[in-house]
Design a protein around this nucleic acid. Structure first.
Length: 680
DNA sequence: TACTATTTAATTTTT
DNA sequence: TTAAATAGTA
């Protein structure tokens, strides 16, 4: 941001000549806002946005040159999967052999590399041959339907520049200054696009950190950093090693951890600030104990004057959030979970949008299929099969196929149902013409019967869905299209809904504990950070352990997590964890042993675990009696039974029980206060 | 065709 | 455990 300010204020660059690109809408919005504050001028002359946002803008402006229809729609991942399934069905392929998710992965990976089906060779591999064939069919289906997926936005924009010298020349001379954030996350096609735009004589400016590259699995290439230096030998490298965020201890720990990775560009963070507390390590008995520990520490923090929003609980996978949510709920600690499904990805919202899309463009087969029988109006799989066949034979949309079907080949009942659906959409189109955007949305969700349909859904779920639909109306009310587009408000709202899936900006000021995955935490900072679930198999994840490159990515993820912390860093793991309904006994994460021991302070577990949920609050003693450091797995001696291993604790207080497996006599359940066990 | 019961499989995520 | 996909029944 200061670079932009410098360019404009000192070097006298025109705001028009600046293009700045980031990965998330949030980052783009922040960048724009801060530049405006910094310069005191509106940022609208500059192109600031995400890769997808900017390429989308380009394609809207030059849709004809890009080989698209003017009203092209964007598919989100779910729509994409839907379309692919249809393609697979049309090709008569078995979904158990040709798994849609894997094929989607393949197609997206190719696009991320800038490769189209026609560029690929099967090398005599029949599986690959088939994949390429599917990719071909998928491309055709997209083209026919006038839709582009996320990866396609970038690929198209690249091809647009590559195949159109005068256009490229125009943008090259306009954007003298190309700036990129989070450069380590760029994939092949993004890099190619940027280099094409900047040109060999250009002066692109990139900011990145190879140690924070955590998206290799979705096509990001750290190598782009080195490639950049080869492509621009005149480029100057600045290392920003002084850190103004974390304490010295946290930085030392993070440096030690990341030093285990090979092939880094290399840097060593330092601070002029104080060392601060040691990293605290807690070994929990199980995932509940882990959550209770975190809750307890947060209470302490708050009791000492801290606020909850300063605390973040970070975990490797979303499934881990549940236990924490329960614990927070129990302890009445407000929290907020980031991630999960976003507003515009909710089923009911997508249903409403599908109605709107269909009204805007009848040829939108995806939307047609989504809502033709929602609410249920007697149009089932059979009828749809007929429609799909007709559409394929005649090479038209499903909408058009209904006309033929109603005339020719349908039973009375289905024909009547279809007719009423067609009339409904036509009626909606007439009725909303000329209305304000939010009135259009309001009208459609009411008249389509969606509201009624979700009201019938039992329980809170239905209520929530209705609320979300109403929220969609307010979202429409607050929507103002940006940029110089000549699109209809409705169209531009629909595109916005796909590109900006709507990370709920709900009450950012609420004082909540923040919960999110490590990936989501990148770019954020918190005074207190808990890295939870630090067990081998969970973090590093089981699927990343065998392969060195993936393991290093996990280590970078851990590095990212640790460096989120400003003052306090807690690391916790559970000796026993119930995952997917099965109990597992894991080892502490190997990353823990990579931290210098002198930076770590181990916190001994208190003894009274097992089922805190069944114990009344307040009934729990602060300290349990005479356990003398005994814990699960401890070797103990009993006066009569001899030596054994502690397997489990149950209950608390004077009746707390302990399960011990003795060498001579096997399993025994003993009352702790009478057993007189001796820890060995 | 609509609804309910059963089976199945399971990182990480933005756009 | 749980959500989603599929099979089975009214």
């Amino acid at each position: 941001m200061h670079r932009v300010a410098w360019l404009i204020q000192v070097e006298g660059a025109s705001p028009n000549s600046i293009l700045a690109v980031t990965f998330t809408n949030k980052a783009a919005a922040e960048m724009r806002g801060r530049i405006e504050t910094l310069l005191g001028i509106p940022g609208s002359a500059m192109w600031i946005g995400t890769f997808h946002g900017l390429t989308h803008r380009l394609l809207r402006l030059h849709w004809r040159d890009a080989g698209l229809v003017q009203a092209f729609q964007i598919l989100d991942s779910e729509d994409q999967a839907r379309l692919l399934r249809k393609v697979l069905k049309a090709l008569n392929l078995d979904e158990t052999r040709w798994v849609p998710r894997e094929i989607l992965w393949f197609i997206n990976a190719q696009k991320d590399e800038g490769l189209r089906a026609k560029h690929l060779k099967d090398n005599g591999d029949p599986t690959r041959h088939q994949l390429i064939r599917i990719y071909h069919a998928y491309e055709e289906a997209c083209q026919r339907a006038g839709v582009v997926d996320f990866a396609e936005l970038l690929l198209r924009a690249y091809e647009l520049f590559q195949g159109n010298a005068s256009l490229l020349h125009h943008y090259r001379s306009r954007f003298q200054h190309v700036l990129v954030d989070e450069f380590q996350d760029t994939n092949a096609i993004q890099y190619k696009w940027l280099m094409l735009l900047a040109g060999p004589a250009g002066l692109p400016f990139a900011v990145g950190d190879d140690d924070q590259s955590i998206y290799r699995w979705r096509g990001a290439r750290v190598e782009n950093l080195n490639q950049f230096r080869r492509d621009y030998p005149q480029a100057v490298l600045y290392k920003l090693e002084q850190n103004y965020r974390s304490t010295g201890t946290i930085l030392k720990a993070a440096n030690a951890l990341i030093a285990n990775n090979a092939g880094r560009l290399g840097k060593n963070l330092w601070t002029s600030g104080e060392d601060g507390d040691r990293v605290k390590l807690y070994a929990a008995f199980n995932e509940r104990d882990e959550a209770d520990f975190v809750v307890g520490r947060i209470r302490d923090w708050v009791a000492r004057g801290g606020s909850r929003r300063e605390v973040a609980v970070l975990y490797r996978s979303n499934a881990q959030s549940r236990v924490f949510e329960e614990a927070f709920l129990n302890a009445r600690v407000p929290y907020r979970v980031y991630g999960g499904l976003r507003f515009f990805e909710r089923a009911e919202i997508k249903d409403a949008l599908a109605y709107l899309r269909l009204v805007a463009s009848r040829a939108d087969d995806n939307s047609f299929e989504r809502v033709v029988n929602l609410p249920a109006r007697g149009i089932g799989a059979k009828t749809l099969d007929v429609l799909r066949d007709l559409a394929r034979v005649h090479g038209t949309s499903l909408w058009h196929a209904t006309e033929i079907a109603v005339r020719e080949s349908l039973p009375q009942r289905a024909a009547a149902a279809l007719t009423s659906f067609v009339q409904l959409i036509d009626k909606l189109a007439v009725e909303i013409a000329g209305l304000e955007l939010h009135e259009q949305v309001d009208h459609v969700i009411g008249v389509s019967g969606l509201i009624e349909h979700f009201k019938k859904e039992k329980g809170e779920r239905g209520e929530g869905r209705v609320e979300n639909l109403l929220e969609l109306v307010s979202a429409a009310r607050g929507f103002s299209p940006e940029g110089e587009t000549d699109m209809q408000p409705l169209e531009s709202f629909l595109a916005h809904a796909v590109l900006e899936s709507g990370e709920g900006q709900a009450d950012p000021y609420a004082d909540c504990v923040q919960m999110m995955t490590l990936h989501t935490a990148k770019g954020l900072e918190f005074p207190v950070v808990f890295l939870a679930g630090m067990e081998d198999g969970l973090f590093p994840h089981q699927r990343s352990i065998a392969d060195l490159a993936s393991l290093e990515e996990e280590r970078r993820l851990c590095y990212v997590g640790a460096t989120r912390a400003m003052r306090q860093l807690y690391i916790t793991y559970a000796e026993q964890r119930r995952l997917y309904g099965v109990d597992q006994y894991g080892q502490p994460s190997r990353f823990i042993s990579e931290l210098p021991p002198e930076l770590i302070e181990e916190i001994r577990p208190r003894l009274q675990v097992s089922r805190p949920a069944f114990v009344k609050r307040g009934a729990m003693p602060e300290e349990s009696p005479s356990t003398g450091g005994m814990r699960m797995g401890s070797h103990v001696r009993h006066g009569k039974f001899g030596e054994g291993v502690v397997l489990r604790f149950e209950g608390s207080g004077p009746h707390a029980q302990v399960h011990v497996n003795f060498e001579r006599v096997g399993m025994k359940v003993l009352v702790l206060s009478y057993a007189n066990l001796q820890v060995m």
